[in-house]
């Protein structure tokens, strides 16, 4: 009896975190794809998040790294460009910051810092402008052109963390620890929300991304704002809760699904929004 009860409670707890579990699975599977050698067939993904070969044939290249490289003066290379086109095409169609929510390993680190912050009820918050990300993005690109090296890759913690995991080294541990502590003690969602230029690049790339959080049952929304409380980028949900729009069109949305998990009334869901003209100059059009 007790065991059945516990089982049912575990199942319901898992159901309440469907999107979180899916997201973590994808992130962890991507990390594992690069390091696990399957018997008889080898590694599914060779390389790292900068550029890789999946299933021994499909090249994928991070378009931001590619852009830095081209600005630094590199010549065009077929394989890397094909890979960059595939990745850029995917994110441009579905939504750029899906990278942040579903691929980036640093997200696991910053989510952990945020969870710890909630647990220990830490209130101190250094306010930073969200535009800082864009400033850093522009700086990284300009510096790549000036210095002739991949400016952001000199300190990029995303590939750094992945290399540390792959080669089990710890030379960059101080930087990663500093990042964790920054998000834990200093500011809420500091790295992903305010500093990371990779997020800014993908936000720009996926401006017209079509996989969107939509309020399909807008009438069911009770206006409790629970979704805004769990969202890492709450401003994207504000128009929905204020009943000014039924679709999240701000490209800051990482499609993390925290709002979908949290919404008690089932008003929200993630859909492929293929309607034409859903926004006019960034203002969502509410079709009645």
């Amino acid at each position: 009896m007790v065991a059945a009860n516990r089982f049912l409670r575990t199942v319901s707890a898992l159901k309440k975190r469907r999107w979180l579990l899916m997201r973590r699975s994808v992130q962890i599977l991507i990390v594992l794809a690069f390091i696990v050698d399957l018997p008889e067939i080898g590694r599914i993904a060779a390389g790292n998040l900068s550029s890789s070969v999946w299933f021994w044939n499909v090249p994928l290249t991070d378009p931001f790294v590619m852009l830095q490289s081209l600005l630094a003066g590199a010549t065009f290379a077929k394989t890397a460009l094909i890979g960059a086109a595939i990745v850029a095409g995917f994110y441009a169609f579905f939504g750029g910051r899906i990278y942040c929510g579903w691929v980036c390993p640093i997200n696991m680190l910053t989510d952990a810092a945020y969870w710890l912050r909630q647990k220990l009820k830490i209130k101190g918050n250094l306010t930073m402008s969200r535009e800082l990300r864009t400033v850093l993005l522009v700086m990284a690109l300009v510096l790549s052109a000036i210095t002739g090296t991949l400016a952001w890759e000199n300190i990029n913690p995303i590939t750094l963390l992945q290399r540390e995991i792959m080669w089990t080294s710890a030379a960059g541990l101080t930087f990663l620890a500093a990042l964790f502590l920054f998000d834990f003690l200093v500011t809420r969602r500091g790295w992903c929300g305010h500093l990371c230029p990779v997020g800014a690049f993908y936000r720009w790339l996926g401006h017209y991304g079509r996989l969107r959080v939509m309020a399909v049952k807008a009438d069911a929304c009770a206006g409790c704002s629970d979704c805004i409380k769990v969202c890492p980028e709450p401003h994207v949900l504000a128009p929905l809760v204020a009943k000014k729009a039924v679709t999240v069109t701000d490209s800051d949305c990482t499609r993390c699904g925290a709002c979908l998990d949290k919404c008690g009334s089932g008003a929200l869901s993630m859909k492929l929004d293929l309607r034409r003209g859903a926004t006019f100059r960034g203002i969502p059009i509410v079709k009645k």
Binding site: R43, A46, G47, N48, S50, S51, S52, V53, T61, D62, V65, M66, S69, A72, G73, A74, T75, A77, A80, S144, G148, T149, L150, E153, N154, I155, N156, T159, L160, R163, M166, W167, S169, A171, G172
Partner: peptide, 29 residues
């Protein structure tokens, strides 16, 4: 400027002689 730090050469070296530079190494990260 051309190397995108992917590590595919490191993976394909049959004798595992190559490494990707960390901050401790005197080469670009």
């Amino acid at each position: 400027s051309t190397c995108i730090r992917c590590g595919l050469c490191v993976k394909d070296c049959p004798y595992d002689i190559l490494k990707l530079a960390s901050w401790a190494d005197p080469a670009p990260l």
